[in-house]
Amino acid sequence: MKMVCGMSTTDKLQGLKVFVVEDEAIIAMMLEDMLSDLGCNVIGPCTGLKQAHEMLAGAETPNVAILDVNVGGEQVYPVATALKERGVPLVFATGYGSVGLAEVWRACVTVQKPYTQDDIVRALGMAVGA
């Protein structure tokens, strides 16, 4: 089930290491599939902040990250900060749109749930400059 999207962008997403934090199992599974379909390598999905920090410490530096804002009742910002310090471009996924983001992160790329594969392609493209 590969969706049709702008080829130039999808080509650039091939082999991209995408760090994923999403605590809802079903949504995490779908995002994992979407990214695999795009030829990306998924790091995660992490379903909690603790796991995210651990995985980040052990993994190669990702090329980009997709972060659910609310993770198990906690906000994902400490993970976002750690990623930013390593120079990783961020995409936030939220049910509230960009207004659901803390002020300092408003400039980051966001996708609003529910999102399509095209939304993910566009958001990743904007984040990594593809």
């Binding site: 949504i27 599939d33 509230y96 659901g100 529910p114």
Partner: peptide, 24 residues
Amino acid sequence: LDELNHRVKNTLANVQSIAKLTLK
């Protein structure tokens, strides 16, 4: 209202995921 909006969005995201994953 914000919470309701959020829950609806979230539920729709779940339904979308179930559809996509089930079809596959």
